[in-house]
Design a protein around this nucleic acid. Structure first.
Length: 434
RNA sequence: GUGGGUAUAGCUUAGUUGGUUAAAGCGCCAGUUUGUGGCACUGGAGACCGUCGGUUCGAAUCCGACUAUCCACCCCA
């Protein structure tokens, strides 16, 4: 297969046979976000490279080795977004959204780009759903954010997904903690893996996240953040937990959760599962009180999360959760004979004008094959028009699920009879619900 | 960036110690006598067996390289 018919590594096609699954989960997400008072924000796929350097963090892996960065003909450095928070924060500042009153609540559904080695649950182009709140310092905002993520899983029927939370403190207490950690790991330097050795200077908190057995062993007895965070941060964290309890959201405190993007402060959380392979984090987020200020705005306590849609779909698949297939065709009209073909074509057009989904033969098949096609596309009703029917001014409509047949007139009375007597009853009997 | 696995029709796979025109199921198309789908039956299309090279009288099968893909490390959603 040549390069012309080969997709780029790490990219995926979402095919017609599967797109309904995406539409379904996206719809659940949108509805959920909107019920929490969030409105959609859409930002460009690319931003100035500096925006990500500044917000995601110069020392992070994402910025250092995973960004799709290029120079434009005008000499600007542009980067395809590796995540959604930076662009949303930029738009918040650029358009002074705070002037509409705080808090500002926004959600997004977008593609992200990271140049990583593709594997299960990790692609170079992937989709995220995310929610962001700006200008809310209270722990209730944290709890609300976590509730929103949690209820999306709940509505989709996801089981065995664990919420893990932690607090990594504010800028001040993190300084003390980082120093204590560094001190601790210095004394175990010889037992650390090479990667962790390099982390020791840059960002010792990441050592806690290492999967290497020896490092894990040392990390086990390392001082925990929770022992170092200041009074305010501690109080904030306690309040988050209290409100999660009030909302009946189950969680586990995991002191080793360290998010990989620099902007996080205080509350951090992840939803993890063991059913989709090594990339087990389906949703991650937290508070980023310093971000807006870092980008040049007024100090604005903010928070958010992002959910990987591919990973979420993998979870649904692994847990055997079936997404209802939409029944898209209301009426398939099969036709036999020249006059009948014209009549069918006209009817189909009129049904579509009335916003119904109608189809007919467009490849020149025989009656039997037309019926097979009607069955294949899962049409609700089918109808056969022959030249005889035109002179008789009657034709039969068939309910494809039950096989029942009904006579309908072939003139203007058709629409009234078909829509009112059959289609509406059918709709009621199936009653599609989310 | 480091490892490991896999590569045969659109999909899932079979192919015996190397031996003629490379199988099957699903899917697709057409038919099974007059104008009605699902079931069943019949037939058909569809594969340079990932690529290049080597061993051999002979390679889908053995060897090598490359490429693609998958999984894991790492990182993150």
């Amino acid at each position: 297969m040549g390069v012309l018919t080969k997709k780029v590594k790490g990219a995926e096609d979402i095919l017609p046979a599967d797109s309904y699954k995406w539409q379904f989960v996206e719809d659940v997400m949108k509805k959920e976000a909107e019920s929490y008072g969030f409105k959609e924000i859409r930002t460009p796929v690319f931003e100035h490279t500096m925006l990500f350097n500044r917000s995601v963090g110069e020392t992070t892996d994402v910025v250092q080795k995973e960004m799709y960065t290029f120079d434009t003909k005008g000499g600007e450095s542009i980067t395809l977004r590796p995540e959604g928070t930076a662009g949303a924060a930029r738009a918040y500042l650029e358009h002074a959204l705070y002037n509409n009153g705080l808090p500002v609540k926004a959600y997004y559904l977008l593609t992200c780009y990271r140049y990583e080695k593709a594997q299960a649950g990790r692609q170079r182009e992937f989709h995220q759903f995310g929610m962001e709140t700006y200008g809310a310092a209270d722990a209730k905002a944290d709890a609300e954010m976590i509730c929103a993520a949690s209820s999306i899983f709940e509505r989709l029927g996801v089981k065995n997904i664990d919420l893990e939370i932690n607090s990594i403190g504010c800028k001040n207490c993190r300084k003390d903690y980082t120093a204590a950690l560094k001190n601790y790991f210095e004394s175990h330097k010889s037992e650390l893996c090479p990667t962790c050795l390099s982390r020791l200077d840059r960002n010792p908190m990441r050592i806690l996240d290492c999967k290497n057995e020896s490092c894990k062993n040392i990390a086990k007895d390392a001082p925990t953040v929770l022992g170092y965070i200041c009074g305010d941060c501690r109080e904030h964290f306690e309040k988050v937990k209290t409100f999660l309890d009030v909302a009946d959201v189950e969680y586990k405190v995991n002191p080793t959760i360290v998010r990989g993007l620099d902007y996080y402060t205080k509350t951090v959380f992840e939803f993890v599962t063991d059913c989709i392979g090594a990339q087990s984090t389906v949703c991650g987020g937290g508070r980023y009180d310093g971000l807006i200020e870092e980008l040049g705005g007024q100090p604005t306590p903010s928070l958010g999360f992002a959910m990987g849609i591919e990973r979420l779909l993998m979870v649904l698949d692994a847990q055997g959760i079936e997404i209802p297939k939409p029944q898209t065709c209301d009426l398939y009209i099969a036709s036999l004979g020249e006059e009948a073909e014209k009549k069918a074509f006209k009817f189909i057009k009129e049904l579509r004008n009335a916003s119904l989904a109608a189809e007919g033969d467009i490849v020149g098949r025989g009656l039997r094959a037309q019926m097979k096609y009607a069955d294949k596309i899962n049409a609700k009703f089918s109808m056969v028009i022959g030249d005889d029917d035109i002179s008789a001014n009657r034709a039969s409509v068939k309910n494809m699920a039950t096989g029942e047949k009904f006579e309908v007139p072939l003139d203007d009375g058709f629409f009234k009879e078909f829509i009112e007597n059959y289609l509406e009853n059918y709709q009621k009997s199936v009653s599609i619900s989310i």
